[in-house]
Nucleic acid binder design. Structure first.
Lengths: 238, 238
DNA sequence: AAGTGGTCTAGACCACTGC
DNA sequence: CAGTGGTCTAGACCACTTT
């Protein structure tokens, strides 16, 4: 029994295939059920089965050959190349000291950009806004400019962000269901440059991240990192 | 022979939309015809129109809002780090023209950095080196500075990289088994800046990528992208 | 001949937005 | 309310590969 989700059938089919691949049941190069087999087994129309397999092919999970069949692709979809990280945990994992400096914690009227990212309608009067600098051994490593949907975290302004990162706080009050991020190289404005103590021409790595909870955007964050002291790592195994 | 392939209807619809965007007829943010309008105009079924618009949305060309309409998206170049797709395919999926300009193709003695990334011992006398500029509609989008293990691709220097990207070439000669990448924001040197036509203070997004084949590092690539025209997108669902 | 994927149709119901 | 996109069905024809 699912909680009033109404998950589309083709998504359920994709999940079924992914589960069998993740569990190791279907290995790389092996054949997966044909469209007709999925139709019989799950009582769906062929168009629905076709869409599920076609989208998994476009994602690189499956390979299809007309007249032959559908096969598990070379790269197992196990790893996320850009992982969701908690900056504080990241720093502590390196054996270093993390410190958070809250600069701003307020309720604001969102501009058009924030509204569109959070998917809040124009009648939404306010969202929460926090700006926090994260230090690794007293060297600034991240400026976290975050906007939070008050429907998801109504008590956000009362939290103590010297003890808990916004990420940790949000993970407690709302289950994380979906993440989208965009990574760019930018020259930030003077304020961010000052907080990060950037050298004159030093660029910043900007991660824009939207997290979703219960099918609703919960938070929109702009994460600025000094180009000379920060990198994102990722990888895949076949 | 010029393949007299029957172009699928949904591909024709995608081309029609892309043509109108390319020509400037439909600008960023403007509304495009609804599915029903396409059905009437082109005498196709709604599923066919739906597929065309849906795939263009997945490529980032269009943005759709249920109950409102379909709109031309931001034309910023985006890559999906989840799939290791090559730059040429990314560009073609956006309906744009890809062109590769090989600048350098040579055999070199690797320096310490390249040796360590490729895991070749000091006695390795040489590796292959290529430097290629990739253009999207004649605008430079990537400088690909690549070092290749000659044990994996002994005929690398003989390939025609105006017709095939190094990625595509390597995928043919060696099965991809593992990928590692590091993403950074940098101020590249004058040579790279010139090739990418970067503005004075514009930073670059650098992806360092090592690919492995048969438990051996096959290739080490430095991929430079203009900060103002390129972004990495990613995400996952729980 | 049987099975596969690639494409396409002509309907349908739903939730949502704007008027 | 009419319009939009999101999903789904139960058929269909085709080109192709394998047996």
């Amino acid at each position: 029994m699912t909680c009033t989700k109404a998950v589309p059938l083709y998504v359920q089919l994709k999940e079924h295939v992914l589960q069998n691949i993740r569990s190791g049941e279907w290995r790389s190069g092996e054949r997966v059920p044909s469209e007709h087999e999925l139709v019989r087994k799950f009582k769906v129309s062929r168009m629905t089965a076709n869409r599920a397999l076609r989208e998994l092919m476009r994602s690189g999970v499956l390979a299809r050959i007309a007249g032959v069949g559908t096969f598990v692709g070379d790269l197992k979809a196990a790893a996320h190349p850009l992982q969701i990280r908690n900056i504080a945990q990241e720093i502590r994992d390196r054996g270093h000291r993390h410190r958070a400096l809250p600069v701003t914690l307020e309720r604001i009227c969102p501009d058009a950009t924030v509204r569109s990212r959070l998917g809040v309608a124009a009648q939404a009067l306010h969202v929460f806004h926090s700006l926090i600098v994260h230090f690794e051994n007293d060297v600034a490593l991240q400026v976290e400019d975050r906007f939070v949907n008050p429907l998801i975290a109504p008590d956000y302004l009362a939290a103590d962000f010297t003890a808990l990162t916004p990420y940790e706080y949000l993970m407690e009050v709302a289950p994380l269901q979906r993440v989208e991020h965009v990574v760019r190289a930018v020259q930030p404005d003077a304020r961010i440059r000052g907080l990060l103590k950037l050298r004159p021409r030093e660029p910043a790595l900007l991660i824009e991240r939207v997290t979703w909870s219960r099918a609703v955007p919960a938070s929109f964050a702009l994460l600025y990192h000094p180009g000379s002291r920060f990198e994102l790592r990722g990888g895949f195994e076949a």
